Simulated scan of single mutants.
Amino acid sequence: MSAGELTPVTPRRAATVLLLRDGPDGQDTPQDAQGGDGEHSPDELDAPERRDMVPEPAEAPEGSETPPEGLRNAAGGARLAVYMLRRRASMAFAGGAYAYPGGSVDPRDERMVTWAGPSRAQWARRLGLDPSEATQAQAIVCAAVRETFEEAGVLLAGPTPHTVVADTTGDDWETDRAALVARDLSFAEFLDRRGLVLRSDLLGCWARWITPEFEPRRYDTWFFVAALPRGQRTRNASTEADRTVWIRPGDAADGYDRGELLMMPPTIATLRQLAAHGSVADALAAAADRDLTPVLAQARVENGELVLSWPGHDEFTKHIPGVTGGPSA
């Protein structure tokens, strides 16, 4: 982008969650996300302790689908599965693409909530924010938990710092979820009304991507990983999605490579990274050491072509011919 040619739109902060579970073929067993002592030292965010991560046999979640034909059992004996949804083709942003539950930070996500896990200041450091932005760090974490409940019906909160709710499928839960989506109810009010503690210790931060400066709709998005809590079931609760699926990361990446699944660069990049881990426990442990340097696309004119590149992700480099002008950063 040449200096002075365009004033980029300021990106909105957002959060998305890669819900994970283990199973014999990545399909059948939810992962227990309960455990932890609710108290953490300053160093625990970089080396989180998650105990009692024991899988239990269960049926596939109601409302979810099996992977598209031809995408199963391509990843050997890997157990790890990730929850994905396909955005409706009519959506203004990433229509028709497979993605994870997530969305923009609501200004009301900064309201104080009962909190378990690393402190807000610790989260600010982990998210790459200034230490003075502890309230903003809380908002990002709250957005991750809130959007996961809004779009997947999964809630990372419980009545105590040691537990998570076991079931969110009743009519009363659905009424609250709909009120959150409509912004008639803030997440802080929702948690307070139900006497719930937000379990920030069940989240691990995986990556941070910022929409390219040349895009008219931009987001500064943190990607989190979390285990599906015992007893809870995902469901397609989002009006923005027309399909949901539990699928192994390697299988989803293979579908993208064959042109069968549409995905944005951050989605396929995180899937390829997750495919290196065979279980939920492995992925959660790896999250503590993930580099959260923001990935921001760069644009330059080179030999009559517009070259778009994402640092560290050469597979997404694009060459668009027919552009005049000299090279620019």
Rank of each mutant, 00 (worst) to 15 (best):
V113G: 04
V113Y: 02
V113P: 01
V113S: 05
T114A: 12
T114P: 00
W115H: 14
W115R: 08
W115E: 09
W115M: 04
A116E: 06
A116I: 07
A116Q: 05
A116S: 15
G117M: 06
G117I: 05
P118K: 05
S119H: 04
S119C: 06
S119W: 02
S119T: 15
R120Y: 07
R120C: 07
R120Q: 15
R120H: 14
A121S: 14
Q122V: 09
Q122K: 03
W123C: 01
A124L: 04
A124M: 07
A124V: 10
A124T: 11
A124S: 12
A124P: 02
A124Q: 06
R126W: 09
R126D: 12
L127A: 12
L127I: 12
L127K: 09
G128M: 11
G128S: 14
G128T: 14
G128H: 13
D130K: 10
D130A: 15
D130Y: 04
P131S: 14
P131L: 13
P131Y: 13
S132Q: 12
E133R: 13
A134V: 03
T135L: 09
T135K: 10
Q136Y: 01
Q138V: 04
A139H: 10
A139Y: 09
I140Y: 02
I140P: 00
I140L: 08
I140G: 00
I140K: 00
C142L: 00
C142E: 01
C142K: 00
A143Q: 00
A143W: 01
A143K: 00
A144F: 03
A144E: 03
A144S: 08
A144D: 07
A144M: 01
A144R: 00
A144L: 02
V145F: 02
R146P: 06
E147G: 09
T148V: 05
T148W: 00
T148D: 10
F149T: 14
F149M: 13
F149G: 13
E150C: 14
E150G: 09
E150N: 12
E151W: 05
E151A: 12
E151T: 11
A152N: 03
